[in-house]
């Protein structure tokens, strides 16, 4: 009790201006999103004047003039995100096992750098480099080139949660499995993977969101005629903002929030199991 009272004096909540600064930050962060969400239900064609509640722009997204275009873009986005997340998660898992369980090997820090630096490289540089690379090797730009690019830039994002979880798993589980006659594959399949699964799922969801959300790289290497949702929205906005864009954006936002919450919930239930077993 005493310690609590003492620490309260240094509580960050009691700093002058704390509430004000917090409110301003939250406002700048969320007001635009809020505006988009509210105005997606606007009955009027104007994007600034409120004309009453309506779902017409949501209907428009699915049945309007541009519905066919959006449907194709959504399908491209989702299928690419699903495949890119799956493949990059598999590759990131292999990389994490090599890095975390491989002991000391020559070029270990270099490998770690190579895996994680892409996160810090400006996206525009990666985009230009990929465009140049694809045209040098003569790859036709389109669905395939987008998929390859997404797999590649998703790997470091999938890698981080997987490696973090793997570092927390004692290697004695794998040794016990091997001791009990499991070969390498069975050790992975029956022991390591189930324990690592929450990390792999976080990696997968993160990669999925990153892929779904990507605009810059995709825009460079998509080629003509193939669109993902972000590039389609960008294309539409260039011709003036119609309220149906807001409806579409709101749908994407909801989907992302859903995925992130899912990943959070999985992470939480899992941690509660961990703390129990760590007690002994």
């Amino acid at each position: 009790m005493d310690r609590y009272a003492y620490s309260k004096r240094f509580d960050v909540k009691r700093y002058p201006g704390f509430l004000l600064i917090t409110m301003v930050c939250l406002l700048i962060l969320y007001a635009p999103l809020l505006v988009v969400m509210v105005y997606s239900f606007n009955d009027s064609l104007s994007i600034t004047k409120w004309g009453g509640f309506s779902l017409r722009w949501y209907v428009d997204v699915f049945t309007g003039l541009e519905a066919e275009k959006y449907k194709r873009a959504a399908w491209n986005s989702l299928s690419i995100a699903l495949m890119a997340a799956t493949v990059s998660t598999a590759m990131a898992t292999a990389a994490a096992i090599g890095m975390v369980r491989g002991g000391q090997f020559k070029g270990k820090s270099l490998s770690f750098g190579l895996i994680s630096i892409p996160i810090m490289v400006p996206e525009i540089v990666t985009a230009v480099a990929m465009l140049i690379f694809f045209s040098t090797i003569g790859l036709t730009l389109g669905y395939g080139s987008i998929l390859i690019a997404h797999i590649v830039f998703c790997i470091p994002f999938a890698y981080l949660p997987i490696a973090a979880r793997l570092q927390g798993i004692e290697s004695s589980y794998e040794e016990a499995a091997q001791d009990l006659y499991a070969n390498r594959w069975k050790t992975f399949r029956f022991v390591l993977m189930p324990i690592l699964f929450p990390g792999m799922l976080s990696g997968f969801l993160l990669a999925f969101i990153i892929s779904l959300d990507d605009f810059i790289i995709t825009n460079f290497i998509k080629g003509a005629g193939v669109e993902t949702l972000p590039t389609a929205i960008f294309g539409a906005v260039k011709q003036g903002i119609k309220p149906n864009i807001m409806a579409l954006s709101t749908l994407m936002l909801l989907f992302s929030v859903l995925m992130v919450s899912l990943s959070y919930i999985i992470g939480r239930t899992d941690r509660s199991v961990d703390s129990k077993s760590n007690k002994d």
């Binding site: 004692e170 004695s172 589980y173 040794e175 016990a176 001791d179 189930p194 199991v273 077993s277």
Partner: peptide
């Protein structure tokens, strides 16, 4: 022989029971 080929079994100090 790799560990899985040796007809010996171990009781680990930390037990290493499979948590799942």
């Amino acid at each position: 022989l790799t560990p899985n080929e040796r007809p010996v079994n171990t009781v680990f100090q930390s037990y290493a029971l499979f948590p799942h």
